[in-house]
Design a protein around this nucleic acid. Structure first.
Lengths: 202, 202
DNA sequence: AATTAAATACCAACCAGTCGGTATGGAATT
DNA sequence: AATTCCATACCGACTGGTTGGTATTTAATT
């Protein structure tokens, strides 16, 4: 039971970090903030993590892993046509953009924005997590290109980054406007662009 | 001479804030950091600004104003065709994406990302500055739409936000990758999408 | 009994903002 | 022209409170 309880405390800290950092940013989030939010004592915090940065890296890894599972097990993956799968991905992202910005924005995008130059370990963790997601998208995009636009000059990787950049920017506008409306519009344009690149013969 | 010197000190603080905040993020930047970078004493800082937040707002306003001047006076504005103007804007942005990420990224995007929920005054300042830029783009996009795609269903405002979201996301990837390469690729896709929306008759 | 988990109390470093005081330069007064 | 006066600009030591991290103790699990 010790291991199970211990893991639960660790998870509570990681979840709290994920939400508090997305709401306040990494630097403005104190260890005490995370402890309070998780309902865990500070002593317990430093039992599980060496430092604030150590927790930050772990929270990013957990977030990336969660996102990877979420999208690799989503229903659209069963669609036979890779073009439908990539459009299904965009549609799912659009569906997720709802409610409070804090809970649908990206922990990695938020963290790397402020920590890229001062916290190399955090930047590396964000790079790893974001690249994992890109590679996932790239597979479906490459398969769709093969079928619908084999001679086009664009690269699946470049398109994957483009879609993700739009999404990260959409989060920023959701924050500025305190509303998901503009972000939704951005995703609609991203979808339209994908449809153009992968124009199915009719 | 007193007033001139005073303005110079103020400007030194605003410039230092712009660069240090873009490098470290808003919360991680201390008043002393800014003073050291500006070569100004702390007493002088609080003579010119009521608080750190007060400086933050002023730095954002100065940044937005600088950007507005930069793009409204750029050579592409003299092009007669609005479609050429909007593509000229994207090309100019692509040309600016070079060297150290810190110096071509957006102070507003960086700040709002971490401060949107905790610093309403900073969020408002970012909203104002970003909206100003959107409205500038919207004018050319609307004129180009009138000429090349008058019946299309998309709105000039929505397209302006889409381009800007891509740009903001491109900055994030420039930070993660510590290279402007992916950001440049994103801008190329944004340009291609604009060309498609505003497909000139041949 | 021994190891792990968790809680409290604590510390040194750091931070935004304050405060008492100095320098400067121009306007008013003599 | 010299002197007084005053507002603005500037300085850096200091303060109250905060922060990441530690030391010590207690509780639980094996």
């Amino acid at each position: 039971m010790a291991t199970k309880n211990s893991m639960a405390t660790r998870t509570k800290l990681l979840d709290a970090a994920r939400d508090v950092i997305r709401a306040q940013g990494y630097a403005a989030t104190t260890v005490d903030d995370i402890c309070t939010s998780a309902g865990v004592s500070k002593g317990s915090f430093f039992h599980h993590f060496e430092s604030k940065d150590d927790l930050g890296v772990a929270a990013i890894e957990a977030f990336a892993s969660m996102a990877d599972t979420l999208f690799t097990t989503a229903p659209y993956n069963d669609l036979p046509d890779p073009r439908d799968r990539i459009l299904g991905y965009v549609d799912m992202r659009a569906a997720l953009i709802q409610g409070d910005v804090t809970y649908f924005s990206c922990l990695m995008g938020t963290t790397v924005q402020e920590a890229y130059a001062t916290h190399p370990d955090l930047r590396d963790a964000c790079d790893k997590g974001m690249t994992l997601h890109i590679k996932m998208l790239e597979r479906d995009i490459a398969a769709a290109k093969e079928r619908y636009a084999p001679d086009a000059l664009w690269s699946p990787e470049g398109v994957a980054y483009f879609i993700q950049a739009t999404l990260q920017g959409a989060f920023i506008y959701a924050k500025v406007k305190q509303s998901p409306d503009i972000a939704a519009g951005c995703l609609a344009h991203a979808r339209a662009y994908l449809e153009m690149l992968l124009d199915a013969p009719r």
